[in-house]
Every structure is written in C-alpha cells, then in structure tokens.
Design a protein around this nucleic acid. Sequence first.
DNA 1: ACACGGTGTTCCACATATTGGAACAACTGC
DNA 2: GCAGTTGTTCCAATATGTGGAACACCGTGT
Lengths: 270, 270
Amino acid sequence: MDRKNVADLENEGPGTGTLGKAMSVLEAVATADRPQRFTDILQTVRQPRGTLHRLLGHLVDEGLLVQRGDLSYEPGLRLLKLAYSSWSGNQFRDVAEPHLLNLHELTGETVHLGILRETEIIYVDKVESRQTVRMSSQIGKASPAYCTGIGKAALSSLAQSELQRIAAKMHFIPFTDRTHRSATSLLAEIEEIRREGHAFDREEHEAEICCVAAPIVVPEHELVAGISVTGPSYRVTMTQLAIWAADVRNSARQIEEEVRIRLGPGRGGG
Amino acid sequence: MDRKNVADLENEGPGTGTLGKAMSVLEAVATADRPQRFTDILQTVRQPRGTLHRLLGHLVDEGLLVQRGDLSYEPGLRLLKLAYSSWSGNQFRDVAEPHLLNLHELTGETVHLGILRETEIIYVDKVESRQTVRMSSQIGKASPAYCTGIGKAALSSLAQSELQRIAAKMHFIPFTDRTHRSATSLLAEIEEIRREGHAFDREEHEAEICCVAAPIVVPEHELVAGISVTGPSYRVTMTQLAIWAADVRNSARQIEEEVRIRLGPGRGGG
DNA sequence: ACACGGTGTTCCACATATTGGAACAACTGC
DNA sequence: GCAGTTGTTCCAATATGTGGAACACCGTGT
C-alpha cells in the first residue's frame, strides 16, 4: 500500500516519474483557456527547458497535444476520443441511465449523476430539462462537494472520520450568500442530511438554481456518488423539491441495488 | 520534421518511449467494455509482465486508472475531467456553437459538429433534436469518414493527393446496403460533393438515419471539419435535406469566417 | 495432503530514455 | 548592429525504465 493518494497531489504534483511530468504538462495545456506557447507552459510547469521541449514533442507524437502554426499547443482530439471510450464503457453510468430518464420523465427537470472524488463531484451523466436550450454536456465537469446537492449527499454517506479528513481539505469559496463558509456549518448540515436521507442545494453554488439529491453508495466498488433533480428557483420551489425528494431517494436506492446485481460481488460483467 | 505521423500508428503502435507504452495501456483499458484484469491487459498490450505491472501502478498513481477490489482496472475519473477541460476550452467549438443552435432552431433536427482526423470523424459538439429522448453525449465519438455526411464533406475539401492517401487507408465496412464499399465509389461521390458544396448521408452509416453536411476548412489551423443536420428518414426526406443544404453551407461558411476573425492569423486569442 | 495451473507480485543486473545546463538559432524591436 | 526575446538542439551524467525469472498466493482436482 505505498500507492500515493491521488488527491494529495491533486493540484500540480511532481508526479510519478516520466508519466507524471507528462500528465502535468498535459493538464496545464488542457486547463488553460487559450493555446499555450512554449514559454507559457514553461512557467506553469516548472521543468528545465530541454526536458519540457522533449516532453511536448512526445505528447504531440501521441496525439494528446497538437501544435499549431504559430507554435502554440492545444489539446489534441485523442484525449476526447479516449474519454468517450471510457465514458461510454462505464458500467455504473450505464446501469444508472434509465433511472435518470425515469426521474426526468417524472419531474420534467434536469437530472444529474455525479461521483465523489475527494473534495469534488465529477458529473458523469445528465438528462436535460425539456426547456433547456444548450446541450452543454458538462460531463466531466468538476464542482466542489460542499455547495452542491450531490456533493453534500455523497459526503453524508461517508464514515465520520473520512468525512472530516476530506472536509479539512476543502477551500470554502462563497459562490452565493447561502454558500457554506466553513467546515463547521457544512458538517452540521451533513448531520441533518444523514437523518433525512437527501440533501438540498438552496442556491448555494449558483444563484437561482436549486436541487434535491440523494446519495448512492456501492461499497463493493468503493464508489460514493449521487443523483439529483435540478431546476431554476422561480419554477422549482423548495416545497416541490421536498416532494420530489422521495422519488430521488427511491431512484438512488434502485441504482444501488441494480449495480450490486449487475456488477455483482463475483465477476464484474455487463 | 521527424515527428511521427500519429495516424500511422493509430491502431496499437509501439509508441513514443515510456509515454507511448503508458498510453497504449490506458487505451486498452478505456476501449474495453468491462474492467480489465492484469492478464487481460497483458494479452492486449504486448509488454513484459514486469514492465506492465509497474506501468499500471503509475497510471493508478496518476488517477488515470482505478484499481477495484477484485484487482481489475477501470478508467479513472481524471481522464473525464481532463477531457472536459480541453473540450470546454476549445475555441473552435466555442465559435461554432451559436451556429449549431441557429441551425437547430431552423430545422428542429439534431445538429453535429465534427473534426476530420485521418480516416475518421470525431464529434466535438451536438445539439439534439427536440424529439430526442437520450442525452447520449456522443462527443468524442469517432465514426468512419466514408459513410457519414460530415466525413464525406470534410474529405471533399482536401487536396486530391491528400484525399487519395487517406482513402487508401480506409477499411470499408458495409454498415448498410447503401454504404460505400470501395475507394472508387467514394471518390466518385466526392467529385459530386465538391461541385455541390454539400454531402448527404443516405442511410449509409445507420439505417433510417440520413443527413446533409457541409465542410468547414480553416487552413490557418490545419483544420478540416464539418457540420450537419441529421434526422430519421421517415421524418426527414431527401427533398427536405436538399432544401436545408443551403442553410448548412451557410452556417459552415459563417463559422469559417468567424474562426478566421476571432482566432485570426496573428495571435491566437479568444 | 499434495501437486498443479493460474493468478498477481517482487526482485535486480542491465540498458536506455530522461535529465538539464549551456550553446545555438531565429526573430523582434530598438 | 546590438540586446532581448523566442524556440531548438546538443550531450555527458544518471535516474528511470526494462524484462526475465523467481516468488507468493489461491483455488482445483486427485
């Protein structure tokens, strides 16, 4: 068990030998919102010039980066293709999907599926509200756990020690005036969420947006996730959310069960 | 110019030193439709046991793979997160987006944006048909160029020599009875597409599904892409598609122009 | 109990890919 | 032309990865 804990180095770690350096370069380019030139990357990733240069060459060879005419680097398409493969082959997502659709049919609002990864929630699937314009596949998007319904729901299902370890690592950013500002207030709400079995997001991450979420736990897969119904507060009242809460919990429980059956304890098969 | 051509090794190449091996392992796991055990991977990727074992360790350390309780490996969430970063920061997609929405408003059908990468089209954005049920973000999905509207449109904008080079690499799989079965028949149609300025998919990739597409070319970025309007043939007739063709060409031209303006020849900025 | 075929894991002498400082080139503005 | 960028190349030192072989483990069948 000398495997480094990924999340410990989450934000720019030295990395695992050659591969680690390559990944941190890749991340630097992918995270940037504009094509990066050699010098830009040099400043982000602290590596000797020669080293970085060769590394970039390799990344281009692999199709992970593309070098444009003006010598700047952009993420290549291989990354997208690779992510699609892993996404579409994800069994958990596959099992959960019909339940998301169900919930969407029932509520008419947007339904999210997200997985907890240390302090953040990563969205892995989404069914849009009927009224939505933008397709905005925010699949792969990461949001803080402390201010999202799925995040808080997922956190509530952790053992207290684990919860505290993770809470200690959070940086509380006040997105709105209802966002939790400290671990103390978050932990207090978690207590309540544990009793109720579901969590609300009362415009804590984004103004005018609220949701109700329930945790999904599959110990056999060390998986802590959540499912939620989200809507604009002018249309979706807290009363309405409270009514939907039971349905959300229900879907979550069904997903848990089906995951256990289909990816059962024995062989993992689909 | 001793940079290897990515596509030449597209299907399982030895790869660029260490990084190449790591990527081929990652791809093996991501492509598989079920969790892969050590031995499974060993057979896919031809590497010595010791080497592979260490490599898997590194990939897990980096969060690119996750090892489950039964020792099998799955793609990790970092890949998805990374892909989202690169996708949402993609300037070409960003510029094209409103035009996709326009086209969707106009037609009511599904609109796709795809980029040509050697013999295949990789979808980078999508606006769904109003009637669609499934969210199915097929972003990142790769389809053969020879049997898709976007693919053929994109191919038609290549120089003849380049077109022939790529056509020679294709493997013609007869998805339906209307699918091109040889480079000869494909190239013949390409001639026609060049004259018209748009391409049709007449149920060539999937039965009951057809589309009309136009090429998008941005030489400054070495980018060959396409945009399309797709629908089920019972609802979207060829006559209808022919009418929409002008709109699709129009959108394509607007995107080309806007890309040139916004990502202009000088500095690449957003 | 024992041998067996199959897993995944560890070890270590060897080879090589990576390292990173420094020199080089190309372009830019003064 | 000179100073200040930028990106690129070179190469001896060495850290890193290599891969064959031995190891430990776990069920199975005899």
